[in-house]
């Protein structure tokens, strides 16, 4: 009997990832320098890096950064609570699931961001509109993956639960939910991506709030290095949330 070996490559994968990004930036820098990319459309990465300090100091980035993160946190919290609950409900009530699952799947691929005028009417030009847009966009994958996770609980695990005479409540909390966590986390990560895209997109469209508004402002001033620097901050938010989600997943699932 052998125990499975754990392969730990240390910081190598992360370093390789960073090296890959650096290589890509160098390539873009080179392509712009030799005239293959138009510098009036894509600024040089060195110019973007050079504009970071200016954007941070002059454009109040920290406050905008925090605002976008807060909107994301609220949206993700709502998506998690409501999405998982609806997923559980649809898994339990077969008729409801059959009646709505296709619609939920269709909604997942809908360009939700185009519904922003409707949300503006409902919630006004406020952070609530942005959060609700992020919530609406992030909801479908969480619902669908929760249903998938619960449905794919291995029958033998349910049989083990039955043999120990678990109540339906115990069966859910002790077996079905933990067993479906990997699928639910896939849904949450997708929901996070959809929510962030829509949050920044709506901030951009309604010129309100955090990093999306900053991107709008800088783009309208035709400050391309600044615009790309602001976009980099959005990437930082996305990477940060993703890392937190991955850590939470590892902690919960092992």
């Amino acid at each position: 009997m052998t125990s499975r070996l754990r392969i730990d490559d240390g910081p190598l994968p992360a370093l390789m990832g960073l090296a890959g990004i650096a290589a890509l930036l160098l390539l873009i820098e080179g392509l712009i320098s030799v005239g293959l990319l138009n510098p009036f459309i894509v600024p040089k990465p060195s110019q973007v890096i050079g504009s970071f300090y200016r954007v941070v100091v002059e454009e109040n980035v920290l406050e905008r950064f925090v605002l976008t993160i807060k909107e994301c946190l609220f949206a993700v919290a709502l998506v998690t609570i409501v999405g998982v609950s609806i997923g559980v409900l649809l898994h339990r009530v077969s008729l409801l699931r059959q009646a709505t699952e296709t619609w939920v799947a269709a909604f997942a691929s809908a360009p939700v961001v185009l519904m922003y005028p409707l949300f503006l009417v409902m919630f006004g030009r406020s952070a609530l509109t942005i959060v609700m847009m992020g919530f609406a966009a992030g909801l479908p994958p969480v619902i669908l993956k929760t249903i998938e996770g619960l449905s794919s609980t291995r029958r033998v695990l349910l049989a083990v639960g039955q043999s120990f005479k678990l109540t339906p409540r115990q069966m859910f909390w002790k077996i079905q939910l933990p067993s479906s966590l990997p699928a639910i986390f896939v849904g949450l990560k997708l929901g996070l991506i959809f929510a962030l895209i829509n949050i920044v997109g709506v901030e951009f469209l309604i010129n309100f709030g955090g990093l999306g508004q900053l991107i709008n402002d800088l783009a309208e001033r035709y400050d391309l290095p600044g615009t790309y620097a602001a976009i980099s901050f959005v990437v930082v938010v996305s990477v940060g949330f993703f890392m937190i989600a991955e850590r939470a997943e590892r902690w919960l699932i092992r």
């Binding site: 695990l157 083990v160 077996i175």
Partner: peptide
């Protein structure tokens, strides 16, 4: 029944 304990053919440990 509480008097019966079952061991299944399939792998049935809880991976979490």
């Amino acid at each position: 029944h509480p008097a019966i304990g079952m061991v299944f053919q399939e792998e049935s440990t809880f991976p979490w």
